[in-house]
Design a protein around this nucleic acid. Structure first.
Length: 163
DNA sequence: CGAGTTTGACCTGCGC
DNA sequence: GCGCAGGTCAAACTCG
């Protein structure tokens, strides 16, 4: 990873701080919290790791209509193996990027890849490689706009970033 | 050699 | 009860 990310990812997403901490462009972001999600104004953002920087505010509406995304976020918890009453810190955002794995200052290990319904692009599953940290993230490309990468974080890091 | 990736199999919940 | 879909596991493989 790089040394360009002195701050850890947002355990408590906050629009301006969140965007300033991360070195990639956010075209959309939203928070999942107890089946609620929200999106804020599109932040201005300077990127060092994202090659194409194009803001598309209109994508918010497209994202709201992603049924598969709602499914996975509101009812299914880790394959349904855990009690759905367990609410984890979870938030997702959409970026316009050629690369799927954004450099957020943590080390991630890929543990699964799956084709999902209603999306020709595979969904990739990552887990924080730090021992004892159970943070996971899912990364998939938007079915309507392959330039957009939808990243969903789940859980809180129990350690500082590796950078 | 260790860390990370790939990929098919497996498990579980949900809808019909 | 069965099939489908999403998520995870783990062995094999790759790479530095």
């Amino acid at each position: 990873m790089t040394d360009n990310n002195p701050k850890p990812p947002p355990d408590t997403p906050d629009s301006d701080d969140f965007c300033n901490q991360w070195s990639f462009e956010l075209s959309e972001y939203m928070q999942f919290d107890d089946n609620q999600w929200m999106h804020d104004d599109i932040p201005s953002f300077s990127s060092e790791n994202v090659s194409n920087q194009v803001h598309q505010p209109s994508n918010v509406r497209e994202f709201e209509g992603d049924e598969s995304y709602f499914e996975g976020s509101s009812s299914r918890e880790t394959g349904g193996r855990e009690n759905r009453q367990v609410v984890r810190e979870r938030f997702a955002f959409k970026t316009i990027s050629e690369i799927e794995v954004l450099d957020d200052g943590y080390r991630w290990r890929k543990y699964g890849k799956k084709m999902v319904k209603n999306n020709p692009n595979p969904r990739n599953y990552y887990r924080c490689s730090v021992d004892g940290c159970s943070v996971k993230k899912r990364v998939e490309r938007d079915k309507d706009d392959p330039r957009c990468v939808i990243t969903t974080y789940e859980g809180n890091h129990t350690h500082p970033s590796s950078s």
